[in-house]
């Protein structure tokens, strides 16, 4: 009965050892430590931004070299000649439209959590039940007062301050089912929670937290092909409800897109 796999045992030992080793925790537990940690993180992020710029420039150079190489090749097709020659001059500029359009292509990458059973939390909004995988759930906060921002779409409820963090609060009903959001529905809504999306600053408003359930991959009808609804990872078969693709949803929200625009 006590026989165990050495690999998993070692993994467990490392996990438990981390959790039960006290030295590393105190700086993070203190508010000062937290600030220090944030400062360090910001420093790192600055470095990352710098690196990204370099990378972009490097990429530009690579792209321009490629295009230059192309130009040295014998050009036979009539349609490419004009374009390539014009690009040869434009390519040295930092603005590269080709890169931007590459980023827009929606490629659904299969999530790691789909490989085995995973936990999902269900919440509801105006009777609509929505599931979010726990691995992509950033936290749950009680709804607090929000500050509305001018010029934002109706689904953008406002900014809620929570422990010095600004949370962009999304009126979930307005985002998910704008066509049903008449006055009576909006009045009846009783938002109580803000469900944080992964590590982003976006939070979805929820009326009730239903429960957390362990799902098997086969419990979900996965929507793998790029669709009009990239924010939908799949449908939980038994409950016939949406399972969010949090990553894609964050992307849409960052782009200021509503459900009707994506």
């Amino acid at each position: 009965m006590t026989k165990s796999l050495p690999a998993s045992k070692k993994l467990m030992q490392n996990y438990l050892s981390e959790l039960l080793t006290e030295e590393a925790v105190d700086p993070q537990l203190t508010p000062q430590g937290e600030t220090k940690e944030k400062q360090e993180l910001e420093k790192l992020l600055q470095k990352v931004n710098v690196t990204e710029h370099h990378d972009e420039k490097a990429a530009d150079v690579i792209v321009s070299r490629k295009s230059l190489q192309k130009t040295t090749e014998p050009v036979t097709s009539k349609q490419t000649t004009s374009k390539i020659t014009t690009k040869q001059t434009e390519v040295v500029e930092p603005k590269l439209e080709t890169r931007k359009s590459q980023g827009e292509i929606l490629v659904k990458v299969e999530k790691d959590y789909r490989k085995s059973s995973f936990q999902a939390m269900f919440f509801d909004v105006a009777g609509l039940v929505i599931a979010v995988p726990l691995v992509e759930l950033g936290g749950i906060h009680n709804v607090d007062s929000t500050t509305s921002l001018l010029g934002k779409p109706p689904w953008f409820k406002g900014v809620m301050v929570h422990r010095e963090d600004n949370i962009n609060v999304v009126d979930t009903a307005q985002w998910v089912m704008p066509e049903k959001c008449n006055d009576s529905l909006m009045e009846a809504l009783d938002y109580q929670y803000v469900i944080m999306l992964s590590d982003s600053s976006w939070g979805l408003m929820a009326e009730h937290l239903v429960d957390t359930v362990t799902l098997e991959p086969e419990d979900v009808k996965w929507l793998d092909t790029p669709s009009k609804r990239p924010w939908l990872a799949g449908l939980v078969k038994e409950r016939m409800c949406a399972l969010l693709d949090v990553e894609q949803l964050i992307r849409l929200l960052n782009d200021g897109m509503s459900i009707e625009q994506n």
Binding site: E18, D26, L137, I140
Partner: peptide, 14 residues
């Protein structure tokens, strides 16, 4: 339910 995700195996959190 979110703690395991947010804390992971952060040192000393046990």
């Amino acid at each position: 339910a979110t703690l395991d995700r947010s804390l992971g195996s952060k040192g000393g959190m046990g």
